[in-house]
Amino acid sequence: MTSNTSLWKHTKTWFHRWGSPAWFYRTSGLIIPWLWAGFFLLAVPGLFWGLFIAPADYLQGDSYRIIFIHVPSAWQSMLIFAVMAGFALIGMVWRIRVAETLAMCCAPIGAAFTVVTLISGSLWGKPTWGTFWQWDGRMTSELVLLFLYLGVIGLQQAIEEPRRAARAAGLLALVGVVNLPIIHYSVEWWTTLHQGTTVSLLGESSIAPSMLWPLLLMVGAAKFFFAANLLSRTRNTLLVQDREKNWVRETVWGVKQ
């Protein structure tokens, strides 16, 4: 029991440390190179395996290989929104500035992944379905996700004071979470042009293992890419926000007060 409480206390202090911008800046600076290493370690073999080694599909031939870009970025675009809403909630309840900044820094990265998803899906749709775009449930809800990201970015830009801006935009992020189950279940609730779910976390996936493995590598690579970008963006934003503060002078300029 006592060891449990002390473990809890340790975890708690560890979390509280992340709330300090100076600590965040230093620690994330140490982690970021490893995240990039993880990204390259997964993305290079994943992409090579997916594009050159994995077999062609019986029906779609080589055009299905867009899956190795499309699916990882689609999942990432949704995951980032959930992460953004999570940080926004923490910022809203505990008023931790690092959490607010993290939430705001999620938005541009998530928007970029959404754009990649929409463009790669469109390029995949033409040779297979015969159309670049249709207003079916999956595509429309993914487009709504892009607009939600743009709304979060726009709202944050419109308010001058950064903490108020983050709180207002965080509220939109929280409300926007309702779109995530819609995107996921759109192919089950309604008839759509987009096919149903291929890769399932529980249960069997309807994709051959020789195609699934490179896909999973790319999915992992997207996670590392996001984490590295998020930490870098947040570091820079904190640096700009705190440019007058002592910790920035000390860590960046080496000035001792």
């Binding site: 062609a56 019986y58 015969g130 042009l193 149903g196 779910t197 309807s206 051959a208 195609m211």
Partner: peptide, 17 residues
């Protein structure tokens, strides 16, 4: 006026098929 193809969620090499 327009015909689109819909494919399913299964991906496999031709041998498996």
């Amino acid at each position: 006026r327009e015909v689109l193809a819909k494919h399913d969620e299964n991906y496999m090499p031709p041998e498996v098929r």
